[in-house]
Lab assay of single mutants.
Amino acid sequence: HNLTITQGKLFFHYNPKLCLSEIHKMEEVSGTKGRQERNDIALKTNGDQASCENELLKFSYIRTSFDKILLRWEPYWPPDFRDLLGFMLFYKEAPYQNVTEFDGQDACGSNSWTVVDIDPPLRSNDPKSQNHPGWLMRGLKPWTQYAIFVKTLVTFSDERRTYGAKSDIIYVQTDATNPSVPLDPISVSNSSSQIILKWKPPSDPNGNITHYLVFWERQAEDSELFELDYCLKGLKLPSRTWSPPFESEDSQKHNQSEYEDSAGECCSCPKTDSQILKELEESSFRKTFEDYLHNVVFVPRKTSSGTGAEDPRPSRKRRSLGDVGNVTVAVPTVAAFPNTSSTSVPTSPEEHRPFEKVVNKESLVISGLRHFTGYRIELQACNQDTPEERCSVAAYVSARTMPEAKADDIVGPVTHEIFENNVVHLMWQEPKEPNGLIVLYEVSYRRYGDEELHLCVSRKHFALERGCRLRGLSPGNYSVRIRATSLAGNGSWTEPTYFYVTDYLDVPSNIA
C-alpha cells in the first residue's frame, strides 16, 4: 500500500525493539523526510534493546553428524571492536523451508527459537588472519532439518551509529543413524509349514526405512522333555500350542467401542483428552525405555581390526524358502538304536541362519518350516543398504507352526516275539517326523474274553527296548493296539495285532 503524509511529521519514542533503520525507511515511504526535528525521533529510546544489523554474515563451514552440527561463519568486528559482546545463534526444527525470524513471537518477546549466546573469538592483530567464530550444536535429532541463523550482539553506541551483522536463515539436516526397533511384532501360524509375521514401523526411523531383515531359527525343545518319565503317576503330560491366527481386521481397528449394538453396526467412541494424553505418555515412556535398553543392555560386537582377528559373527547367506525346513542338525536320541526319531534339535552355532529381506511392506510369510516346531524370529529395521547396512537392534518374537495331521501315527506293522515265561516283546517304529517329539506310547492289549488293559511306555523305555515287553501273560489269544502321544496330543491307534500265548508248562520236552 502507498502511504503519503502531505502535512505533519513523524514522532517515535520509547520503541526499544524498533531499529532506527526501520524508522528511516518509514520517513522515505511516507514522504516526511526532512520535516522531523532532532528530538522527534529519539536516538536513545528507539532500538536500544534490539540488534540492528546492516551487514550480512556468511557461514564459512558446515559439518553434520547424526546428532551434531558444527558451524563456522566469517569474522565480524565493528569499528570499535570492544562493542562486540558476542553472537546469538538461533535454531529450531523446520520440516519445511518457510521459516521466518519472527515465527511464534508474542507480545512478551518470546519466540519459538532456541538461542545460544556465543563469546567472540580472540581478536588477531592481523586483519587478514582473524579467527572464524563458530559453535557445535549438540543433542539434535537424527535425520531432522533445522533452520539456523546467527547475528551479532553489540553494545549501545553513544554516537548512535547503527552497526551489526546478521546471516540469512539456512537449512541444515542432520545425518541418518540406526533406527529404533520395529514396533509390535506379531507372529502367527496359518499352516503346519508357515508363519505369518506382521509389525509396525519404528517410532524413530532416523532416516528413510529402506528394508527390513527377518531372521528365523528353529528352537530346540526343553531338555526336561527328553529326561522326564511322563508315565509316572502324578506327572502331567506336557503340551505345546501353536500360535493362533490373526483376529479379523475389524476387531483390530483402534479407537473402536468394545460393545456392539445388537441391531447392527455401531460407531466408534472418540477417545477423551485424558485417554489420548495417557497414550502419549505411555508411548514416550516406551521410547525412553527402549533407548535405555539399547544403550545399557546391548553391547556392540567388536569388529575385526587390522591384526587379522576374525569377526566372530557368522556370515549372512541367503537361502531359498524351500530350504528352511531342514535348518537344524538332527541327532538321534540314543545312538545305539537307529530307529528312534531325530527330534532332539541342538543347533550348531556355526550354522548360517536363513533370512529374508523385506522391502516396502511390514509383513512376511515364512514358508518351508517344520510342522509343530518353535521358531525364534528376529526382526531388524534398516535405513541404508549400501555401502553397508545400517540397521536397528533386533526385536524378537516366537511362534510355533501348526501340527501336521497323521504325523504322530505309527507307520509300519507292530511285530512281536514270544519268549519263555510268557513274555512277549512288542516292537514298532517311532514316527519319523512327529509333531514336536514323542513323549510316550500307549499300549492297549486284551486277552479274548477279558477286559482291555493299558500300559504306558516312556520315551526312554522305548529307546532301550525298541518297544516294550509284556510279562506274566496268561495263555490265550491276544490283540494289541499302540498309539503315540506327542507334544500336540495323541496320534491314531494302530491296526490290531494278534498273537497267541501258550502255557509254557505244557511245552513238550526233548528229553527222552
Rank of each mutant, 00 (worst) to 15 (best):
209 I>M: 05
503 D>N: 07
386 T>Y: 03
481 R>V: 07
373 T>R: 05
505 L>W: 04
399 A>V: 09
315 S>H: 10
435 N>P: 01
268 S>Y: 03
256 Q>E: 07
302 K>S: 08
221 E>K: 15
423 V>P: 02
335 A>I: 15
371 H>S: 09
206 N>W: 15
308 G>E: 14
500 Y>S: 09
368 G>Y: 06
483 R>Q: 12
399 A>R: 07
444 S>D: 04
221 E>W: 06
365 V>W: 06
383 N>F: 03
403 P>W: 09
385 D>I: 08
229 D>E: 05
489 G>E: 15
365 V>S: 08
345 V>N: 11
205 P>M: 14
474 S>T: 10
289 F>H: 12
267 C>H: 02
244 P>E: 08
467 G>R: 07
324 V>G: 04
232 L>D: 15
477 N>F: 13
457 V>E: 02
297 V>F: 13
274 S>F: 02
495 E>V: 12
458 S>W: 14
406 K>M: 04
280 L>R: 12
274 S>R: 10
357 K>W: 03
318 R>Q: 02
495 E>L: 06
387 P>R: 04
272 T>G: 12
223 S>M: 12
408 D>Y: 01
439 V>E: 05
456 C>P: 03
463 A>K: 06
279 E>Q: 06
247 E>V: 12
501 V>H: 03
223 S>P: 13
502 T>K: 09
449 G>V: 02
365 V>T: 06
395 A>I: 05
246 F>P: 11
442 E>R: 04
284 S>C: 06
288 T>D: 06
311 D>M: 10
445 Y>T: 03
272 T>P: 08
472 G>N: 10
295 N>L: 05
406 K>T: 09
341 S>G: 09
342 S>N: 07
377 I>D: 00
335 A>L: 10
471 R>Q: 04
250 D>A: 12
454 H>E: 14
500 Y>H: 08
375 Y>T: 02
466 R>A: 05
279 E>T: 10
281 E>D: 03
289 F>P: 04
296 V>I: 04
391 C>R: 04
463 A>G: 09
315 S>K: 04
468 C>W: 04
458 S>F: 04
277 L>N: 14
235 L>G: 05
271 K>L: 10
425 H>K: 12
259 Y>H: 04
425 H>C: 02
402 M>S: 10
500 Y>K: 08
265 E>Y: 08
453 L>P: 04
354 P>W: 04
301 R>F: 03
203 S>K: 09
437 L>N: 03
467 G>N: 02
377 I>A: 14
313 R>M: 01
503 D>S: 10
381 A>K: 03
337 F>D: 04
436 G>S: 15
274 S>L: 03
380 Q>L: 12
268 S>W: 04
381 A>F: 01
311 D>E: 15
230 Y>N: 13
322 G>D: 15
231 C>V: 01
371 H>R: 10
368 G>A: 01
445 Y>C: 08
242 W>H: 14
242 W>L: 14
405 A>E: 09
454 H>A: 07
479 S>D: 03
297 V>S: 09
338 P>A: 08
320 S>Q: 13
332 P>I: 11
296 V>P: 12
467 G>S: 03
225 L>F: 03
327 V>I: 06
230 Y>S: 07
334 V>L: 13
500 Y>Q: 04
293 L>R: 15
390 R>Q: 11
232 L>V: 05
483 R>S: 07
438 I>W: 05
385 D>C: 09
472 G>W: 05
423 V>I: 07
267 C>P: 09
265 E>H: 09
205 P>V: 00
284 S>T: 12
399 A>S: 12
302 K>Q: 11
379 L>S: 02
242 W>M: 05
266 C>K: 09
485 T>G: 03
411 V>R: 07
504 Y>E: 14
239 S>Y: 13
223 S>I: 09
221 E>Q: 03
488 A>M: 06
290 E>S: 13
432 K>W: 07
493 W>V: 09
442 E>P: 00
376 R>H: 14
342 S>A: 14
415 T>R: 14
339 N>M: 03
431 P>R: 01
234 G>A: 06
483 R>N: 15
403 P>G: 03
332 P>S: 11
298 F>K: 01
455 L>R: 07
260 E>Y: 15
456 C>W: 00
297 V>T: 08
301 R>Q: 13
407 A>F: 10
391 C>P: 01
344 S>A: 09
297 V>R: 09
304 S>T: 04
217 E>L: 07
485 T>N: 10
502 T>C: 11
333 T>S: 13
477 N>C: 08
307 T>F: 08
309 A>M: 09
437 L>Q: 12
504 Y>R: 10
326 N>F: 14
421 N>F: 02
225 L>V: 06
505 L>I: 02
480 V>A: 10
343 T>W: 09
272 T>Q: 09
499 F>H: 01
499 F>P: 01
504 Y>S: 05
362 E>Q: 09
453 L>M: 06
444 S>V: 10
226 F>Q: 05
482 I>L: 07
269 C>S: 05
278 K>F: 10
310 E>Y: 15
332 P>R: 15
365 V>K: 01
333 T>M: 13
425 H>A: 12
482 I>R: 01
484 A>N: 00
399 A>G: 11
455 L>C: 10
284 S>N: 07
398 S>Y: 15
397 V>Y: 11
292 Y>E: 11
220 A>V: 04
496 P>K: 14
474 S>Q: 10
406 K>S: 07
340 T>L: 08
395 A>H: 06
396 Y>K: 15
427 M>V: 07
461 H>Q: 07
422 N>E: 15
222 D>C: 08
228 L>I: 13
447 R>G: 12
232 L>Y: 05
320 S>L: 08
395 A>S: 11
253 K>V: 01
324 V>N: 08
267 C>S: 06
424 V>M: 10
429 Q>E: 15
476 G>H: 00
286 R>V: 11
261 D>V: 14
349 P>L: 09
269 C>P: 05
356 E>L: 06
229 D>A: 15
279 E>C: 02
372 F>N: 08
246 F>V: 06
226 F>A: 05
414 V>H: 01
412 G>T: 04
484 A>T: 12
218 R>Y: 10
400 R>H: 14
332 P>L: 12
242 W>S: 10
276 I>F: 14
460 K>D: 07
301 R>I: 09
505 L>N: 07
344 S>N: 08
424 V>I: 00
362 E>D: 13
214 V>K: 00
476 G>L: 00
402 M>I: 07
387 P>M: 12
302 K>D: 14
448 Y>I: 14
435 N>A: 02
375 Y>H: 13
332 P>E: 15
404 E>G: 11
470 L>E: 00
477 N>Q: 08
466 R>G: 08
375 Y>A: 01
293 L>F: 00
232 L>E: 12
349 P>Q: 04
423 V>G: 15
263 A>E: 06
303 T>K: 07
321 L>R: 10
281 E>A: 10
448 Y>K: 04
498 Y>L: 02
298 F>L: 15
417 E>Q: 06
498 Y>V: 06
474 S>C: 14
488 A>Q: 03
404 E>Y: 13
225 L>W: 12
312 P>D: 15
388 E>S: 04
486 S>Q: 00
406 K>G: 11
242 W>A: 04
247 E>L: 10
360 N>Q: 13
329 V>D: 13
374 G>T: 11
470 L>V: 12
349 P>S: 08
510 N>W: 14
273 D>S: 06
217 E>G: 10
398 S>I: 12
211 H>R: 11
